[in-house]
């Protein structure tokens, strides 16, 4: 039986002004998970615990079956990690970095590295300090992809990129990943990137996991209904509705468990359903976080 690529169980980590509050989630092998949260939600802290860069105060973390941080050396052989703030050695060339990584990982694939160089338009003799931000991200991706890790952990890899470079990096990443059966944890606050690349989504906010589901299920069950409402009609929030906002004779209902019965409920209440539309991942993300904060009284 395949062990999960990542398992978090009741993981806690406390700082003076922030705490990861017993988070649990699981990424199966071969899956791509978008790990989405606003700035300061706990994405980077979770990923640093995952990579054994910091140690959790409580809870269990397993990466490819290895308990972290105890078995980090065994786990890290099969994990490729790229983060927004990771840097290479500025005075050395990309070729030197490639040779350094190759000297460590027997799984390094020279042919694949050459393909990636071409695909990413990178020049091996170029010094790292002369690379643009986009090229630096691509260089980091090349260094992890060419050793063919079983699990890729990408912590906001596109955060500092301009829209064109971000589009290129995501497009290249999707192209590269098409042929492979890798597990990926992709953290970002950019839902557009996540929507393109992921097949599972986990939302994190203020140190807590607020939702975790299959991407299609997310997109399927969330809907926004536009209603015409007579003044006398009273709109309540049945199960599956996260928010009702009313302005004069119109109302907008946001539902996280949409079913056609919902339309019937509002019709019976005297409203006319003018429009039902699917929501973008960004709208779902904002609605989830807002609803969750309201429920917790924050």
């Amino acid at each position: 039986m395949n062990v999960p690529a990542i398992e978090f169980e009741g993981v806690r980590k406390s700082y003076k002004f922030f705490a990861l509050d017993g988070i649990s989630f699981r990424l199966e092998q071969g899956q791509i998970m978008g790990f989405v949260g606003p700035n300061g939600a706990g994405k980077t802290t979770s990923i640093r615990i995952l990579m054994a860069l910091i140690q959790q105060d409580a809870g269990e973390v397993r990466v490819l079956g290895h308990a972290m941080p105890r078995e980090q050396v065994a786990a890290k052989w099969d994990v490729g990690f790229v983060s927004d703030d990771m840097r290479l050695f500025g005075s050395a060339t990309l070729a030197w970095h490639m040779s350094f990584v190759k000297s460590i990982y027997p799984s390094w694939d020279d042919d694949y590295a050459k393909q990636l160089l071409k695909r990413f338009y990178l020049h091996p003799e170029q010094q790292i300090k002369s690379l643009s931000t986009g090229e630096r991200v691509k260089a980091l991706l090349l260094l992890v992809l060419a050793r063919r890790p079983r699990l890729l952990v990408l912590d906001e890899p596109t955060a500092g990129l301009d829209p064109v470079a971000r589009h290129e990096a995501i497009a290249e990443l999707m192209e590269v990943l098409k042929d492979d059966d890798r597990s990926i944890l992709f953290s970002s606050h950019n839902t557009l990137d996540v929507e393109q690349i992921s097949d599972q989504i986990t939302f994190i906010d203020r140190g807590r996991i607020v939702e975790s589901d299959d991407k299609e299920a997310f997109l399927d069950r969330w809907r926004r209904l536009a209603l015409d409402v007579p003044e006398s009609a009273r709109l309540h929030e049945p199960r599956g509705v996260t928010e009702v906002t009313r302005s004069g004779h119109t109302a907008v209902v946001t539902a996280n468990a949409y079913s056609p019965e919902l339309e019937a409920i509002y019709t019976q209440a005297g409203a006319t359903v003018r429009d039902v539309r699917r929501m973008t991942l960004e709208e779902i993300f904002v609605a989830t976080v807002t609803h969750n904060r309201k429920e917790r009284g924050e």
């Binding site: 054994a52 490729g80 703030d85 990771m86 840097r87 290479l88 050695f89």
Partner: peptide
């Protein structure tokens, strides 16, 4: 400070090593 330490610690070594 330049965060190349992140790159080094992502390699299969322990912080003690």
């Amino acid at each position: 400070q330049s965060k190349s330490l992140l790159f080094v610690l992502s390699l299969p070594i322990s912080p003690t090593q």
